[in-house]
Nucleic acid binder design. Sequence first.
DNA 1: CATTATGTAGACAGGTCTGTCTATTGTCAA
DNA 2: TTGACAATAGACAGACCTGTCTACATAATG
Lengths: 203, 203
Amino acid sequence: MAPTKTSRIPVRDRILAAASELFYREGVQNVGVDRIIAESGVAKMSLYNHFKSKDALIAAWLEEQDDRWRTCFKAKVEALATDPCDRILVVFDMLKDWFEEPDFRGCAFINSAVELVHSNHPGYQVALAHNQATYAFILTLVNAAQLPNPESLTQQITLLMEGATVVAMIQKNAAVALQAKQAAATLLVAAGAPINLEHLLAG
Amino acid sequence: MAPTKTSRIPVRDRILAAASELFYREGVQNVGVDRIIAESGVAKMSLYNHFKSKDALIAAWLEEQDDRWRTCFKAKVEALATDPCDRILVVFDMLKDWFEEPDFRGCAFINSAVELVHSNHPGYQVALAHNQATYAFILTLVNAAQLPNPESLTQQITLLMEGATVVAMIQKNAAVALQAKQAAATLLVAAGAPINLEHLLAG
DNA sequence: CATTATGTAGACAGGTCTGTCTATTGTCAA
DNA sequence: TTGACAATAGACAGACCTGTCTACATAATG
């Protein structure tokens, strides 16, 4: 490899970093490869040497995002709470923090699935896999809480998560995360979880 | 006006009809004006005489969809149920029917907001207004049910609706509507509504 | 030093898209 | 009939986009 004078970060990583920011901020359709190479300070041929096409770059970006999300999300949940039910609820606190980030623009996977339209697009496949991975992760939390009908409860909680993400994006309103948390807590209590609902309403 | 020989339907309506199908099926970004005029059998200048630009056509399409939705949705809910709580729950049965339509591809307003990116786009404004109209309509149902904290309950129910719509789209899974309905029923019961949950699980 | 691999810079082809323009046709009303 | 209006067909400019190509520069390795 040729460590360029301008930067010692590998070319592929620089491309992915620039693509990540631009794709998320403006959508995959509104960002051309010319802007990605300009932002990353890379030659166009380098981009096409590392990625077969723009569609392949989109898929690679989503895969990288998915990888990061799986590890970061799991680690954060486990660091913020130990009780199984608390871990489910703390997910919504994390969502609120995410929604409050100034550059928040919704879920990259949902947004990309909408833009890519066709489910045979490699990027769409990654988005779908991410969606199922979210379900699977929440399911581990619900299973740990040993509540009845774990699959149903998990699906309902993920619907609240996705709904909150979409509404927070379109309305630019981070507070919906708290409403989603309240709803999730109600579902948990109805399933028999030992949660103090009064305490939730306060903070 | 000049009623064309090929059709007596006004030109503007033919343009909107073609745009509606194409925009919804493939997304506003993936459909060019050339395809709209080909599908509607209209001259390009006619399109630009009726709509200032493609962006204006997108906004007009969304406004028309919003108008139709407001009247159709309200009428259907009121026709399918009379009890306030039943009316809230029947919304999710309607969602399921919608999700099962072969051409279902999610919510046109959410999808368009994602594609248009910028909240100052006229189409984005219509999508946002539609989102708030949904909230307002559900709020009337919740108010009719005379339950405590109507705004919170309404927000939580709309989160379930939006979440179900997004997940149904990305997974092509209409069954999530039933999970959303179940969650909504649990929330209603927790709020004191007189609902038989066992009956819900059956159908 | 020489070779090989990697990256750079930028031109370029071929396609698509929006929006404009012109010339022509058809329809209604006075 | 005639003039005003609406719609048609299609060419066109200008911009943008993807992906390829060439010529050159740089770095590590044998």
